[in-house]
């Protein structure tokens, strides 16, 4: 098995197939849990465990796809540009919303971690959970967190957003498309943005913008909030 899997092609092909399976399942079953991202990840983990293939064999190909996350983020400027009028018109509500969202995320996570009796290092790993991976990892290190745990926090947060965003904004009657996009991007960063892009151009552009802004606000606020609780 190692002969077939120990090369870059393996991770590339497996990721692509898992992605296609995710899209197929999503089209077939119109339920929130049939999220292509969730299905893709679960399919690959199951495949690797089932055939006892080491993660490292997957990683070499997976890293190639992961690299394109960079240019993919850059391209989020396109839906944002298409919504430039909305952006200019809503500048103040957007900035206030992201600031309130970032602050409440930090306070909530710090307070809940303390209440649940988690170690300060775990709390520090959790606090950057709603920002994009590159900012989150640096922030976690600066606070004294464990970066591997921060990776899990960020991914689970993003998946929660990607899977439940549409239902949540619907249930809580957040009707304005700008508010939907900012809410999703602030709470569930770029991963949640994959869902926002599906929902529409306004939501997608705003969510991409919000995930960037949340990164800045969280990086500035996190050290103060952390010291307040620990």
């Amino acid at each position: 098995m190692d002969l077939i899997t120990n090369n870059i092609g393996f991770g590339l092909v497996l990721t692509y197939i898992a992605f296609k399976i995710g899209i197929k399942v999503k089209k077939r079953f119109a339920v929130a849990l049939a999220n292509p991202l969730l299905i893709g990840i679960v399919t690959i983990i199951a495949f690797l465990l089932l055939f006892d293939i080491p993660y490292e064999n997957y990683k070499s190909g997976g890293d190639v796809i992961h690299f394109f996350l960079g240019p993919a983020t850059v391209i989020l400027a396109v839906p944002l540009y298409r919504q430039i009028k909305e952006l200019k018109k809503n500048m103040l509500p957007i900035l206030t919303g992201v600031l309130i969202g970032s602050l409440s995320a930090l306070v909530m996570v710090a307070a809940a971690s303390k209440f649940a009796g988690l170690e300060p290092s775990i709390a520090a790993s959790l606090m950057p959970k709603s920002v994009t991976m590159p900012i989150g990892l640096e922030l976690s290190e600066a606070l004294g967190g464990v970066t591997a745990i921060t990776v899990i926090s960020i991914v689970v947060t993003g998946l929660t957003g990607a899977v439940f965003a549409e239902k949540t904004v619907g249930f809580f009657k957040i009707k304005n498309e700008v508010a939907q996009g900012i809410g999703i991007g602030t709470s569930a960063h770029a991963l949640g943005t994959t869902k926002a892009v599906e929902m529409g151009d306004v939501q997608g552009g705003m969510s991409g913008l919000a995930s960037g802004l949340t990164g800045i606000f969280t990086a500035i606020l996190a050290p103060f909030i952390y010291r307040l609780f620990f």
Binding site: G11, F19, L37, K59, H66
Partner: peptide
Amino acid sequence: TLFFIPAG
């Protein structure tokens, strides 16, 4: 979505 799968 494809680009987020490896991180997950």
